[in-house]
């Protein structure tokens, strides 16, 4: 499947097969989750990041089925570059109506970055001024968990984490995704 046809598929699924919800509701709901976590965990932002990742992981495990059902994807991706393309053009498009750019491929094609020029989860957000949030909290960390959970269900073990965030004062919001290994079960699909 070529890149343009993936873009078209993403657009089509977003327009026709997705129920829409008010964007402010999503932003406010996600915001209150993060704010409540920060309060409950007493400003331990490392722990907040971990919890957001865990929640995202649970979402990802389930979201992948919805993704596969709605987008009608039948073939596995040929390689990790294809996976990246599908995540950006179909996955993110379907669920958040954004298409992050894929950059910074490593030489072994096992790592890449997603550059977000818009992030609906972080609209209107300003991190608290207590000196620690700006350096410790990754506000949109749930997205990393979602990617990790979803890819694990299709036999890929990855690590996803943010390396920069405009909420922290950086120029860009960038998530780094790194393929650790393909999870082979007892019956490998290909004849290696």
């Amino acid at each position: 499947m070529s890149s343009t046809s993936r873009a078209r598929l993403g657009e089509e699924v977003w327009k026709l097969r997705t129920d829409k919800i008010n964007a402010e509701l999503v932003t406010l709901t996600y915001g209150s989750v993060v704010a409540q976590l920060c309060k409950d965990l007493d400003g331990d932002y490392a722990e907040v990041n971990k919890q957001l990742d865990k929640m995202g992981y649970n979402i990802g495990l389930r979201l992948i089925e919805d993704f596969l059902a709605k987008s009608n994807m039948q073939q596995k991706c040929a390689n990790f570059r294809d996976t990246a393309d599908v995540i950006s053009k179909v996955g993110f498009k379907m669920f958040l109506n954004i298409t992050p750019t894929i950059v910074n491929w490593s030489s072994d094609n096992k790592q890449f970055s997603l550059l977000f020029d818009e992030n609906p989860l972080a609209d209107f957000v300003e991190l608290p001024d207590d000196g620690k949030a700006q350096s410790d909290l990754w506000y949109s960390n749930m997205l990393c968990g979602v990617i990790r959970g979803a890819l694990e269900m299709v036999q890929m073990s990855v690590d996803a984490h943010f390396v920069s965030d405009v909420l922290r004062g950086n120029d860009t919001t960038e998530m780094r995704i790194n393929l650790i290994r393909y999870i082979e079960d007892e019956m490998p699909q290909d004849d290696e």
């Binding site: 402010e24 932003t27 406010l28 996600y30 915001g31 209150s32 993060v34 704010a35 920060c38 609209d123 209107f124 957000v125 300003e126 991190l127 608290p128 001024d129």
Partner: peptide, 17 residues
């Protein structure tokens, strides 16, 4: 209204942004 949208801002908090 935009300040209110910030999840870390509560009503009646001083606006320091």
């Amino acid at each position: 209204c935009k300040t209110l949208m910030n999840p870390f801002y509560e009503v009646n908090m001083a606006i320091r942004s």
